[in-house]
Design a protein around this nucleic acid. Sequence first.
DNA 1: CTGAAAGCGCTTACAG
DNA 2: CTGAAAGCGCTTACAG
Lengths: 350, 350
Amino acid sequence: MSLPAGEPGRRPTIKDVAALAGVSKGAVSMAFNGRPGVSETTRARVIAAASQLGWAPSQSARVLSGTRVNTIGLVIARPARMLGLEPFYMEFISGIESVLADHDSALLLRLVGDVPEEIAVQRAWWRSRQISGSILVDFLSDDPRIPALTALGLPAVAVGHPSLTGGLPCAWTDDATAVTEAVRYLAALGHRRIARVGGAAAFGHTAIRATAFARTARELGLDQARSVDTDFSGAQGARATRGLLASPAGSRPTAILYDNDLMAVAGLSVAAEMGLAVPRDVSLLAWDDSQLCQLTLPKLSAMSHDVFGFGAELARRLLTVLNGGTPATGPVATPVLTPRESTAPPARTT
Amino acid sequence: MSLPAGEPGRRPTIKDVAALAGVSKGAVSMAFNGRPGVSETTRARVIAAASQLGWAPSQSARVLSGTRVNTIGLVIARPARMLGLEPFYMEFISGIESVLADHDSALLLRLVGDVPEEIAVQRAWWRSRQISGSILVDFLSDDPRIPALTALGLPAVAVGHPSLTGGLPCAWTDDATAVTEAVRYLAALGHRRIARVGGAAAFGHTAIRATAFARTARELGLDQARSVDTDFSGAQGARATRGLLASPAGSRPTAILYDNDLMAVAGLSVAAEMGLAVPRDVSLLAWDDSQLCQLTLPKLSAMSHDVFGFGAELARRLLTVLNGGTPATGPVATPVLTPRESTAPPARTT
DNA sequence: CTGAAAGCGCTTACAG
DNA sequence: CTGAAAGCGCTTACAG
């Protein structure tokens, strides 16, 4: 399909291309990078020579002579085993890459155990000039990354509500509104005892959802609106559900809202295991809405969310920052209620 | 925690560190990289100066002056939407990174639509010297990456059986043996009509599993040992299962082996939807065995596989290649049968 | 044990 | 429109 360089041993450099095309190195650079200052015939000759030799400019050399490095960083501080089953991240990464690919940029990915480790990685990447900026996720309240990375001068955009992300440019889903909608929907179906299986308490977005849940329940006059924290894993989702459904019948929740879809899937099995029918005895409402929600029986109702587009938007905002612009600020689309088969009015007998 | 450089504007270089430590640039380099030729007191002074200024050597400059670039590539040619739910990849990536992290190396990740696009990405990365090598996954039969990347001279290790990976150093799970074990186990339970819901037919490992499945069925004298191809998605797993279970009762399979766990989860719902009890009416056996298998009711029996360790092993073998060594060759641990609740002897009445 | 110099492969002013 | 030169920030022989 293309001509391999053939020459074993040495890899071609700009000098070889210049020699083959019969021009100076400077001309090759201009021609190859589409800059003015070179005739079209010369440009064509250079491109042909480069392709014949299988040459592309060394990124290191380009960066060293002033070009911005075309790599951006993403560090995820969650246990590896858990990430495998969080459909969120792969979709989010795909979205980021869909944008980066159009800008000849690449994603440097790292999975770490905790936030201090993340800071160390971001710092090392930045100081050694391996990345030009980063996308930050999973903000804690008073997140230590904010002062640390700001001091470093690392360009970054954050996934999270402005109340969490310091002064960083950010993008977020309006989780408070989505939670409110979810609870109102369940209440409108007739549920009075609604519980929530939340994610990791340390995350700021978990706190935002918990607060919105409690507030909405209060506004609607719902009693016993319990929230249970987990680590987002299926195992803890199951445990939390078991705890909730083991309550005496008169105080047992008739509807449960989950913070992701994996835990909702686990909840479905727990309900069956305890002899409760979904949605007759208990309604289940998932979050994020990956493909998983449509593989269960009954299919899971969910707060559905365009994770791929979310990733793409973050990448776009980071590129804007890197180009010296002011990125759009504001939330992306609010998760939208997608009723399927796991939510219904509570049974009369309950 | 650490002293920010403070100086807004310019980032420190080796020259600044040399000046602060009162030595030459060469001495800073030797000291910082732990080379001999510098006294311990000088080394300490250099380290202190570097840390005070927040300096780390520029990767670009290091690479340009001969150091190997510490980045390795991974390109996954599968639709993004599908990756989100393949627990395999995140665990695999985690495993790779667990090794790279110990060698100050990083993972450059790219998701693409097809193999030609992957070849283009690998070629661009290699020519521009952004990676020192790659881990290749999802081999097709007669995979076009083999000649293309070999011609390039890209150091690579492959995930796949030697019959698929050309002459590339590789690592693989012995899927043929695992499939054989799976089928023998189901037959030993008393099943005579065993079907298989396979992955994407284009992949070499799918073909290996299909062949082993057919051979074992023949050896055991099983009739109607059907294999159905899918794209690994839950939706197609459901469709395939529906097709199999819709057979007339006398020819309907009493056991189904899946090529991943997502499809097995989907199969579980389909069985329920069709009024068939698992495992009474049909046994289901998953592959890969992520956390998902333990969240269903019944819990899924699976061919369990240390995906994290698999990724780590690939990374180790690639590093060996990059260091000029000959990597260990041979399979990693064979997936091991992990019986749970979804497999049992077939009901008498069937 | 240390310092001055060359060179890695580009890009970018700066002359022609 | 083109060519020769400087410089990016390191590392590595090579003298002292």
